[in-house]
Design a protein around this nucleic acid. Structure first.
Lengths: 108, 108
DNA sequence: CTATAGGTACGATGTACGTCATACCTAATG
DNA sequence: CATTAGGTATGACGTACATCGTACCTATAG
């Protein structure tokens, strides 16, 4: 497998994490990844958000820089996957909160 | 005791809560209240933040509107206290996260 | 080589947020 | 009543953020 690109090796600072999670779109990304099987990898586009590609890139960058996801370079595309261990390690219970709290009303 | 003023009876929506908690000053308020004995009540000024009174009011309003604190009107002043039950009820583990994660480097 | 698909980079724009100064309100103190 | 302390309301200002369009890059498909 292509070695996991952790991008900015942020040590999961609470402020950045909470800021990143303040946005409903980003929260849904994390929620879907958290609910997915295990080390599920998904492309940015696979979430089907009604925003431009540029906006998508922006949101995923925020998530990556907050240390919540890593993006594996697959040449043609880029797969995002949850950094479960790191998150659970420094912010235990966070993912559970996100998963349980919102089925998302409508991203629209 | 003067009956607790819950202000806006927000049902603790995740988005609002995370947005409120994205600010370090507000996070410290919650952290200090969470670490305090039990139903500790503190005035806004008692936290000694290096910001103007108007700014303080603003931050406490955000916390109140997010449903994280309630402010008891004491006539002369206003005491803020954590809404522990509500928080733990809908967002279990959140307070633990806040308390354990940051001793705050320096509010400056 | 020429598409085409998935992402990124670079402005640009409008809105939200943190901050402040100032003015005002309420209650206790003199 | 005047003063003082703790808060609130309003308006302003600068910055950060979400969003977009457009241009560009890389790899697969033809």
């Amino acid at each position: 497998m292509p070695d996991t690109d952790n991008a900015s090796e942020t040590p999961l600072e609470l402020g950045s994490v909470l800021s990143a999670l303040a946005d409903p779109l980003r929260r849904q990304v994390i929620r879907e990844l958290a609910q997915a099987p295990a080390e599920t990898e998904r492309t940015c586009a696979s979430f089907g958000f009604p925003v431009s590609k540029a906006t998508l890139t922006h949101h995923f960058r925020v998530l990556r820089e907050a240390g919540l996801i890593s993006q594996v370079d697959r040449g043609n595309s880029r797969a995002a996957c949850l950094r479960r261990e790191e998150i659970e390690g420094s912010l235990p219970g966070l993912l559970a909160l996100l998963v349980s709290e919102k089925p998302v009303p409508a991203v629209e």
